[in-house]
Computed example of a mutant assay.
Amino acid sequence: MSKISASQAIAMAKCPKCREGRLFSVSMFSYRRLSDVNKTCTVCGANFVPEPDFYYGAMYISYAFSVALVITSLTAINVLVAEPQLWMYLTTTVVLNMILLPAMLRYSKVLYLYWLGKLKYRGF
């Protein structure tokens, strides 16, 4: 029986049904198959791909992450820099998006599976 809460399971990208199996086969820092989701859970056998092209909807969550990042970075530059120039906005936005892209791609899929995957937690 897993003692992991739902928020911890989301943060660690664990199976929504048993909260023990891993959703992704490779590390977040491996850029080869960055966002490939396992087909099934290795612990409980839950299906992580309920239908073909299921994760296309996760693009909307990823887009929301990007918009939030851009708004936050632009606001931070306006607050921290007296007279910001255009290159500051562009450089900051591009660099932050490149650095956080792996996390945004992965967690958009994790959240999409938790919200719409119809897998409910069952403590064994």
Rank of each mutant, 00 (worst) to 15 (best):
K118F: 05
V67Q: 06
Y56G: 08
C15L: 08
I4Q: 12
V110D: 01
P16R: 00
L113G: 09
S35W: 14
N78L: 11
V95A: 14
R33Q: 11
Y31L: 14
S5N: 09
D36V: 13
A82W: 00
L111S: 07
Y63H: 07
V49T: 07
L116H: 06
L34D: 10
T93C: 12
L119G: 06
L74Y: 14
S35H: 13
A6V: 10
M104K: 12
Y114E: 01
T40F: 15
T40R: 15
M59C: 08
M1W: 13
Y55R: 03
F54E: 05
C44Y: 01
F124A: 12
A11L: 12
S66R: 02
E20A: 03
N47D: 04
M88Q: 09
G21F: 11
P52I: 00
Y114D: 06
E51T: 06
P84L: 05
G21L: 04
K3D: 14
S7Q: 04
K14E: 12
T93I: 04
A103Y: 02
I99E: 01
T92P: 06
M12T: 13
I99F: 05
D36R: 15
G21C: 05
T93P: 03
Q85W: 05
G57P: 07
L80H: 11
N78A: 10
A82Q: 11
W87N: 00
S73I: 06
S62I: 00
F48P: 05
S66I: 06
Y121M: 09
